[in-house]
Design a protein around this nucleic acid. Sequence first.
RNA 1: GCACCCAUAGCUCAAUUGGAUAGAGUACCUGACUACGAAUCAGGCGGUUGGAGGUUCGAAUCCUCCUGGGUGUACCA
Length: 542
Amino acid sequence: MKKYLASLFDATANKLEYLKNKSVILSVPNQKGHGDLSTNIAMLLTKELKKNPREIATEIIDNLDYDSSIIEKIEIAGPGFINFSFSIKFLSKIIFEIDEAKSDFGKSKKHVGKRANVEFVSANPTGPLTVGHGRNAIIGDTVANLLQWIGYDVDREYYFNNAGRQMRVLGQSVQLRYKELLGEIVDFTDEYYQGEYIKEIAQLLVDEHGDKLLNEDDESIFKSKAEKEIFKEIETTLEHLDIKMNNFFNEQTLYDDGKIDAVLKEFKDKNLSYKKDDALWLKLTELGNEQDKVIVKSTGEPTYRLPDIAYHITKFNRGYNLIIDVFGSDHNATFPDVKAGIQALGYDAEKVDVLIYQFVTIIEKGEVVKMSTRKANYITLDELTEAVGKDVVRYFFNMRSLSSHLNFDIDLAKKQSEENPVFYLQYAHARISSILRMTDEQKMNSSFDNLELLSTEAEINLMKMLHQFKDEVYYSAVNYEPHRIANYLEELATSFHKFYTDCRILGTEKKLAEARIALAKSTQTVIKNGLSILGVSAPDRM
RNA sequence: GCACCCAUAGCUCAAUUGGAUAGAGUACCUGACUACGAAUCAGGCGGUUGGAGGUUCGAAUCCUCCUGGGUGUACCA
């Protein structure tokens, strides 16, 4: 619909000077009776032309060279909106288009040939992923899906650091549990990782090495065992959610490959760093930020900023056109420094988009559950997935906008009932499968020959919803808003259920029945495609 | 103190990025299965969009101030 109107306006711009180089925004009115698409262009032009918006609208319409078999009606309404209504003949074409494209329907080629890197999860391997990481994981993976739908070649990347203090403590924790298992009395204070998994890893070491490690004086062998085991578990957890990383990027390689030194040298050459109190500072104030920050501590250890800058530069050098980081709101202060740093080194920081999502609050039995990894007071992502299933986890984390503090109600998620919105969508899909099984048995076919018979309100609404899908995908993708897809699908499912109750197929006159089967089928395709973006399955039976 | 985010129906959240009468779900109250799945549909109840100003044809959305929450504010990541 938009495509056709956009081309009309382009053509009209040749006749009306003031429409040139204006982007005409077409939107779906949220009020029934205001047409199928609407534009506010006339109101936007009032200042420039010093004319009444309704006059401008009239002039534009008079110069629109439209096909009356496609557009049924054009109206000027309210203060100066131009509302367009489309014909059934045009609306119903979508059914045919969907059938042609099938699982590709909704995809766009706008960004074909471009590469994107989506970095997400990126939890250091100090313990199992928690429900908190779940939101990060699902958002990252779904945004990656969306980018693929608009043509990007996408890599999913996990960045980790196995060198810091946390990891040393992890190694020591395992070492202590190991000693404990072999009968030594240890003082396991609460600075150590308290989780049960530490004991399990220690047990593995006992099984493998017996008591031979008792005299190890440093924790490194314990640390590397822990890291290996924990990563194995993290990957399994992600797999349970259908998430597959293309690349695990170890921060350590930045040091080994000299990338850190190279960045340090560049900052020095550009006179952007200086020594003060034995530490090396980055002149962020010169780059427009609030204050200078330390990049190498007086101990000689870099702060997180330095490797982060070096890491992002590798992303540029690896040829990505779009670089996305997914962070929790606790990181919101860190990325301006990093962005300023890479910009200063001559890279286009505009290509880096940081998605900040707000924290998840877990609600169980109506109460807030507080969590901490070190204190082992948490619900793991795996436990959650096991309890409610992949589809529910993915849907729940996708259904709200990033900026909203998400309440994850475990009891609601567990309910396999009408209160759980996932099932509403899946039910619509399964219901269509059921219809198709039924019509198949009765040797009824779908047909595109008489689609203009689809003329009831429910049928027309459903077709309009189908028309919106492609825009919805594009819009969600470029704005990184997966929740829009979830909202759209709920609306689509509602339109379908309404159609189902109003418009029968069995026992209806043959031509109309065939057209309705075609409509149901195309609806099913769109539901399935939408769910696949979210990573939720579309069952044929429930 | 400062910075970023948030505040919308009893509850959980939307609102096409400044558009028309602010919408869904849930809860509560009605009604609809002897023909395609009632995990559904229809109707009702529910709002000064935290408060006060401002900007303009038009504000939940932008600006200022206030109130109340979240997250940071390190030579932690």
